[in-house]
Design a protein around this nucleic acid. Structure first.
Lengths: 211, 211
DNA sequence: TAGATTGTTAATCGATTAACAATC
DNA sequence: TAGATTGTTAATCGATTAACAATC
């Protein structure tokens, strides 16, 4: 975001992680420059679109040269907030929740899971990879005391709405939601949904089209 | 798809599962009709867009009345291919893979997991919810013998490309990919990606914008 | 019949692509 | 300097919204 500029469209934001991923690969190969047309070949986006996208945030390139890969990767990382830190909890320590909790990709995105929460009293006190499971009764207090910013929601759909509302009421400002529900959150709260089922239905649709 | 009509845009296809989800809720409450403007209030899409979307596939409504909820849900289910059956395997029986394998949403979308595959010889012969884990050596034969159509890929990114190529070479025509890689597949193959990391970075971006 | 709401055409808006002057 | 490639403006394309005649 450049101050005073218009809001950047979501289509652009969706492409930023893709650029970042390719730039990571490229820098690991010690390639130190890339042109928009080379990046176009890698990503499948047009060179024109790539230049447009990047120029939403500033002129990172140099005429006649292209982009410095290390610098561009760093810039995109900053735009995506990768160097910010967010204390996070995960609600719903079932199979999917536990798998997510152990997922390493978090660290490099700045999300640190501080606790798991579950309705099942039998799980309370257990831990997943060293992260303790708490009772749902302690949710509000924990969020407030530890200034938790983000909640990952992996509970069944029946309890998802309630859980999300409780988290937000206690101070959470970001939700990563895996439950198949559509919920509206206050303006100052960000929700990002992973819709496994919708994705599967898309696959189903295109399989049908294909045959 | 209506024969002879133009290809329906992906934006439309992405909204179909949302319509289906709300129609399921509504029919469960025994509501038997709904207008595009009521559906608009529920989904957040404009009434105009809803009518446009649906008319890509046919006129399911009735002037002065609206849409019959049961019928519309059924029509959308058909469009999405929910009544098709796809024999499926899952490759990568790690934590995420095992969680996905146990996920029930599959059945209602027509995907039936017939086997799991893993590189780890120690896991071979185990089973997850009654589904047996096979050695990667048996992948090609299994796909061919059982006419497997779809592969769910939950291996680490290092092996994802190879695994996807092997599956496609053996006859798989649909990939549900959880690995953070960008891969191009042949024209007659459908790939649908779940990009956990990209989603998390989007959350990170909007958190940063918010604060 | 009168009222409601669709299906569909037309208008608008926004995103992508093309083009090219600026400049390294 | 000549060649390359950006940043940016203009043109195009496609998706969304508005409007309204058709019709239940």
């Amino acid at each position: 975001m450049v101050k005073g500029k218009d809001k950047v469209s979501e289509a652009v934001i969706r492409r930023l992680p893709v650029y970042h991923r390719f730039l990571t690969e490229i820098t690991e190969k010690n390639v130190d420059r890339i042109s928009s047309s080379e990046l176009s070949k890698l990503t499948g986006f047009t060179a024109s679109q790539i230049r447009q996208d990047l120029n939403n945030f500033g002129g990172f390139g140099q005429q006649g040269y292209g982009y410095n890969t290390v610098e561009l990767k760093e810039e995109i990382g900053n735009i995506l907030g990768m160097h910010h830190h967010h204390d996070t909890i995960l609600i719903g320590a079932g199979r999917l929740g536990s798998a997510i909790a152990r997922y390493n990709g978090f660290k490099e995105s700045g999300f640190a899971i501080k606790a798991l929460f579950d309705y099942d009293e039998k799980k309370i006190g257990d831990n997943v990879d060293g992260i303790k499971i708490y009772s749902m009764d302690e949710l509000e207090k924990f969020i407030k005391d530890k200034h938790i910013e983000v909640a990952i929601v992996t509970v069944p759909k029946q309890s998802a709405k309630e859980v999300i509302e409780r988290a937000i009421d206690s101070g959470v400002i970001g939700i990563w939601n895996f439950a198949p529900i559509d919920i509206t959150v206050p303006n100052n709260v960000v929700i990002e949904n992973i819709r496994l089922n919708d994705s599967l239905l898309k696959l189903s649709y295109y399989l049908k089209e294909r045959i």
